[in-house]
Design a binder for these strands. Structure first.
Lengths: 235, 235
DNA sequence: TGTACATCAGTGAACGCGCGTTCACTGATGTAC
DNA sequence: TGTACATCAGTGAACGCGCGTTCACTGATGTAC
């Protein structure tokens, strides 16, 4: 809607911006953050170097955009997966489905996953909206812990998360919005553990640590989600 | 012993090599892999740029050394922790202790952890001995799964690991050496899961993702190890 | 509908930088007889 | 113990590179009256 009312100039501008980002992503995939170079991007788009500064204030601004996009994209993938679940889906199946959606996204585009979850880009500080995006990714996990009864092993985590929610109103609010009926400490602990499991598997997989092990990250992740469900006494 | 028979020249040489690496590590800590620059290292050691080539064939050779050292160091930390355990230590306590040793090492020197487990260095291919080092880190985890009875959640992983051991003799041999009495699939699955849990927590922690969450990686990791013990029915 | 002006995309030249690496060479330290 | 030679650490100059970014400028596209 906003798109169709755009002036031709603005539309063209958006198009070029998109093309620039696309090439930047390809460079990222090929050689990591350090390989994203304005000069070479310009050459590929068919522009002179300085022209890029009409579209991005600096190299950092471009990277920021890529990071923001990646977060939003991952969040969208998870949200979409959550919305595709029938209302009758068991918590266990929900965990599986969401975690798998995350992993699929990451494995399909490792460079983007590494961009947001990997080694922090040196000298670069993430925009504050990153926190919101991380929440958008994790939000759909929260309601899976409805009626959970955490085992003694994870109870310290529940306690710590409860304390966090109690002292950080936005967090508490976020949990309430996504999972109104669930104990806050339990929901947060569950989501936290799910996140950590996810990153454990995907992080290793994406860094190529499983290569030549005749071994599949999907099996590992599913198993971890299943035992997470067990740990929280979920159906 | 070998050290004391070294000629003065050789000793001096080793000393300079060590100094170079030390500075490289500091650069790594300050600005990531990309910040490791021979030119600046030389200046800090008080040598001219080309002189560094007497000590390392190239920048890549230096990085290789750093990676090898880091692996060896981490492996040593874990091994040491394993040897400090009394013979009567419960499997559960063993898992906790080893995982904590890993985490302590990583948290104390995040840049080195990121060097070996983080985003792969672009254009750099790891030396094959890396596999051995990874095994040295994971080896001490294997005997913890003596007498384990894996829950149904992780049984698919056990099956997959069993298949791996059956088709990869060196792996099978490695498991047998570290945990002769344990079912190979079970031991491998346990170590794999422990590794993944470890990386999940430490990877997020080291990338600063837990900042401002009033929340501690140690609690999370301990909880994960405890539930891993539960999942495998360990005492 | 035409004109005057403002906005915007894009250019080429230039700056300054630090990088990895090669080369021909010097002087000190070790080694063999 | 002395001498001849080989090895090694280190130097300064130089190469070529690509990088991010600034600047003054041109020409096209939009906008207001």
């Amino acid at each position: 809607m906003a798109g169709s009312t755009q002036s031709p100039r603005a539309r063209y501008r958006e198009q070029t911006r998109a093309e620039i980002k696309e090439i930047a992503l390809r460079q990222l995939a090929e050689g990591g953050t350090g390989a994203v170079a304005l000069t070479r991007i310009a050459k590929e788009v068919g522009l002179s170097g300085p022209a890029l500064y009409r579209y991005f204030d600096s190299r950092d601004a471009l990277l920021t955009d890529l990071i923001r996009d990646a977060y939003a994209d991952l969040a969208a993938a998870v949200t979409e997966a959550a919305e595709a679940l029938p209302a009758t889906t068991s918590p266990r199946a929900r965990l599986r489905a969401l975690a798998t959606a995350c992993r699929n996204w990451a494995v399909a585009q490792p460079h983007r996953y590494l961009l947001i979850q990997g080694t922090p880009v040196p000298g670069y500080s993430a925009p504050p909206e990153t926190v919101d995006s991380a929440r958008a990714v994790l939000g759909p996990f929260l309601p899976a812990f409805d009626g959970a009864e955490p085992s003694s092993a994870v109870r310290p985590v529940v306690t710590q998360m409860k304390a966090w929610a109690d002292t950080d109103p936005p967090v508490s609010e976020w949990v309430r919005l996504n999972a109104p009926a669930v104990d806050q400490g339990t929901a947060l602990a569950g989501a936290m553990l799910a996140w950590s499991h996810m990153h454990g598997v995907v992080g290793l997989e994406v860094s190529g640590q499983f290569d030549g092990m005749g071994h599949d990250g999907g099996t590992l992740l599913t198993a971890q989600m299943d035992s997470l469900a067990d740990t929280f006494g979920l159906a």
